[in-house]
Amino acid sequence: MTPVDLQELTAMALEEIARADSLDRLDEVRLRYLGRRDGLVTLAGQRLRELGPEQRAVFGQEFNRASGQLRSALETRQRELAAGEAERREDAEWVDMSHPFREADQGHAHPVTGLIREIEDIFAFLGYQSVGGPELEDDQHNFQLLNMPPEHPARDAHDTFYLSPPAGGWLYRTHTSPVQMRAMLGSPPPLRIIVPGKVARRDNPDPTHTPVFHQVEGLCIDHGVTLGDLKGTLEYAIRALFGRDRRVRLRASFFPYTEPSLEADVACAVCQGAGCRTCLQKGWIEILGSGMVHPQVLRNGGVDPGTYSGFAFGMGPDRIAVLRYGLTDLRDLYENDLRLLECF
């Protein structure tokens, strides 16, 4: 073995390293030349011992250089091959990353529940607790305690579903107001509650009526509550629901259980107040009835009107949903068409 032989051997090895096309092949090359026991270069190195001191120095240097060169070539090639192999593996694991997704496979809340949540949250900021009450009521709670004795003309607006015997003493509540009475009779003031729930009136289904629908009732009773407080509260809530710049107006009205009574309108979003079909040419859309709780109703609820005063309001989330989401038919809210539900 001469340095020349070693050079040839190195050149051959380098060529084989370059030709190795997989990590396995490369390992074979490494073993053939640098294998610990019988690698060709390793064996050449063992022959150093057979040489004289001078030649040994020359050859030793040559040997170190050659084996160093081979190791670094092996390392480089190994990196190259490893990278290539990862590429090939990943190529084989191809996924169509252009796949269009609309949205995660999650369910959707009903628009009316969504609105009720929103209303609850707005009033939670103002210190109101959301409570429920029975949907089947007696005449006492639904009407009489609310200043509507039998034959009262205001009952005309509450076309009521009555149950058949033997449950003939019950009716489907026509508004959420009976829960006001239950709340007053249940705990002393101060009271701040919001009552979402289903109610029913005997209206034939049409684009603006469903026989069952939702209401959200609110009640606030404390010392010195004023109509100004009612106004401030409604304005805050209505702007929160309909937008900061939406115009709101309060107009005098009549409900047997409030005095004074008010209705709240918002400017029609379609025509901005000019009058259109949506608002029946009025420019305004009625969204809420309210008023100061009638002293007699307070008394009926066991609250002394000399000490406390309060206000109450009621709104229809179904109608608000129609206005806010541009629905054209109230009945669509109860068809559960997924094309609609998926938008909320």
């Binding site: 496979d105 999650q106 369910g107 959707h108 809340a109 009903h110 009316v112 529940t113 949907e135 579903f161 489907y172 289903k198 029913a200 469903t210 026989p211 069952v212 809210l333 109860y334 559960n336 997924l338 539900l341 998926e342």
Partner: peptide, 10 residues
């Protein structure tokens, strides 16, 4: 993955 429905009580 379920969406919310709302039906009449009648």
């Amino acid at each position: 993955g379920f969406s919310e429905a709302m039906s009449l009580s009648l």
